[in-house]
């Protein structure tokens, strides 16, 4: 009796485990497909820009990378000025945005009174929601005249310092690499500071409290406890901001001055990869179009290299910490 009634039960579990295994397999394929879709899209975009820009990229070896000559009439194209402009403006943006973001995050998590944290962090997150064209208009109509008014003072003071003086010489146009870098800094600030604030909050209270109990100042707690605990996430946040700065188009186009002439001064106009594309793509045909697509491919490469450096830095840090 018990044997006959016990018999169907193992068959049922066997059936269930077989369907479960099938579902698992199906689910695994589905997930793998989703992940592959991202890879395929990325690879497809990179390869199609490489294909679209092949006429220019592989002409005369790598002349495209190292020439600053950009002449659509003669079909001579060199990407040096846009590459330099992209890197310089992003670097200025990072130099300004990282310390300020750190200060904001530190203030909001450690120092600010509780009632202030909500409104201030909401305001910072709202900065991230402003479309970049608005930053461009603000930059052009409000910030550029302001920069034009302080640039004579800049070149009279900083411009006289030996080595770095050359960076601050030039006519007070208000437009240029420095202005674009500052506008970019304002744009990437919310990204970096909100990541920093989030991760600072994850530091266990008992670690901080133990440190305070041993007599640490707030600065020592932040520098020796909070920052080492969150280091990799902080670097991740910084590179998120850098990624945005490298690809930013409209705001930069408005305040950069769009000139292909390379100069040493940060007060002079320059151009960037994305703003060159945005400016010229509409009316470009033939080789010119190919050159702009090749610029798009270079933006892929530059971003990829920057991310690679970030990964490398993180790995070095982890090794140092003995993880």
């Amino acid at each position: 009796m018990s044997a006959t009634s016990a018999e169907p039960i193992p068959r049922d579990t066997e059936h269930r485990s077989r369907t479960d295994a099938r579902h698992d397999l199906f689910f695994r394929f589905l997930l793998r497909f989703c992940a592959m879709l991202v890879l395929a899209a990325l690879l497809g975009a990179a390869l199609s820009t490489l294909w679209g820009g092949r006429e220019v990229l592989f002409k005369d070896g790598f002349r495209f990378l190292f020439s600053s000559d950009w002449n659509p009439v003669e079909n001579q194209f060199g990407a040096l000025a846009p590459i330099v402009g992209t890197l310089v403006t992003s670097l200025i943006a990072l130099l300004l945005a990282v310390p300020v973001s750190f200060g904001i995050a530190l203030f909001l998590t450690e120092i600010a009174p509780r009632w202030m944290r909500g409104p201030v962090s909401a305001a910072i997150e709202l900065l991230a929601a402003i479309p970049s064209i608005i930053y461009g208009m603000w930059g052009l109509f409000v910030f550029v005249p302001f920069m034009a008014s302080i640039e004579p003072t800049l070149s009279d003071t900083l411009g006289n310092i030996p080595v770095i003086g050359a960076l601050f010489q030039g006519p007070p146009l208000g437009l240029g690499l420095l202005t674009a870098g500052i506008v970019l800094a304002v744009m990437i600030l919310p990204f970096i500071s909100s990541v920093m604030r989030e991760v600072f909050q994850t530091v266990p209270a008992r670690l901080k409290e133990s440190s305070y109990a041993l007599g640490s100042t707030t600065w020592e707690v932040v520098w020796d406890i909070v920052l080492p605990y969150t280091r990799s996430a902080v670097i991740g946040g910084i590179f998120l901001g850098l990624g945005r700065a490298l690809g930013e188009t409209m705001a930069v186009t408005f305040v950069l001055g769009n000139s292909y002439n390379l100069t040493a001064s940060l007060l002079m106009p320059g151009t960037s990869i994305s703003s060159s594309i945005a400016n010229e793509f509409n009316e470009a045909v033939g080789m010119h179009r190919s050159a702009l697509i090749a610029l798009g491919f270079l933006l892929f490469v530059v971003t990829f290299i920057v991310l690679l450096i970030a990964r490398f830095m993180l790995r070095q840090l982890q090794r140092k910490e003995g993880r």
Binding site: P72, V73, N279, E280
Partner: peptide, 17 residues
């Protein structure tokens, strides 16, 4: 030196969109 076109290599100046 420069020629004509919808975009040219400007010897000097700044570009507005």
């Amino acid at each position: 030196k420069v020629g004509e076109g919808t975009a040219v290599q400007w010897p000097t100046g700044i570009g507005g969109k």
